[in-house]
């Protein structure tokens, strides 16, 4: 049993924790979505969910708080990748509109997240894929076709379509973040 609860459970404590961690969460999400606007939407939902459940936070250090925020962000991101849209349930419940990113903000997030480098890396990896993998990836990710449709379009079996998409995503996922396979895991 923990001796005392972190200040995060209080309103002021939450506000301070937000200021401390919001930027890191935004950059974390920007690196994984490659889109600052989407990253801001997901950041907003992350903190809305955290705000709603702040009294359930059981940690007692700032590191625990960071781990808790990132855990929620990870789940929000995972649902975004699975569904293709940013969830806004907690934001809606709290009645919060997400502010828009002004051009200066946009440039700052792109810079902080190193998105230009990241986009370059993705473009390089895409260019290095074989034609068949790139085409399968295009049909799945850009055109959002189901695997049986991809199989028909490419005149291959559905397992083969899944395998091509999976390999393509794994290759690009490694370029984005060598320590995780999140994108590949979530999309296949």
């Amino acid at each position: 049993m923990r001796p005392q609860q972190h200040a995060l459970a209080t309103r002021d404590g939450f506000s301070e924790a937000y200021t401390q961690h919001a930027r890191s969460i935004l950059i974390f999400l920007a690196r994984r979505t490659c889109d600052p606007e989407t990253a801001l939407d997901l950041t907003a939902e992350t903190f809305a969910q955290a705000f709603e459940s702040r009294r359930r936070f059981r940690g007692n250090t700032d590191e625990d708080a960071a781990a808790w925020f990132f855990g929620i962000a990870r789940n929000v991101l995972s649902r975004y990748v699975r569904r293709g849209t940013a969830e806004r349930r907690a934001l809606t419940r709290l009645g919060i509109e997400v502010p828009s990113l002004e051009p200066e903000d946009l440039a700052r997030v792109v810079e902080l997240a190193g998105l230009d480098d990241l986009r370059g890396a993705v473009a390089r990896e895409l260019g290095a894929l074989t034609d068949e993998h790139r085409e399968a990836l295009q049909l799945r990710v850009v055109e959002q076709l189901e695997y049986d449709d991809i199989a028909r379009r490419l005149a291959i079996t559905e397992p083969a379509a899944r395998a091509r998409v999976s390999r393509g995503l794994r290759t690009i996922g490694r370029a984005l973040d060598p320590t995780t396979t999140t994108i590949q895991e979530r999309l296949t």
Partner: peptide, 24 residues
């Protein structure tokens, strides 16, 4: 409510923080 907030360095994030602060 906090009378003064530190900033995150990103205007939209600061605004989002204020909106969270204002939630009833």
């Amino acid at each position: 409510m906090t009378a003064h907030r530190e900033t995150t360095g990103i205007v939209a994030l600061d605004e989002l923080g204020r909106r969270l602060d204002a939630v009833v």
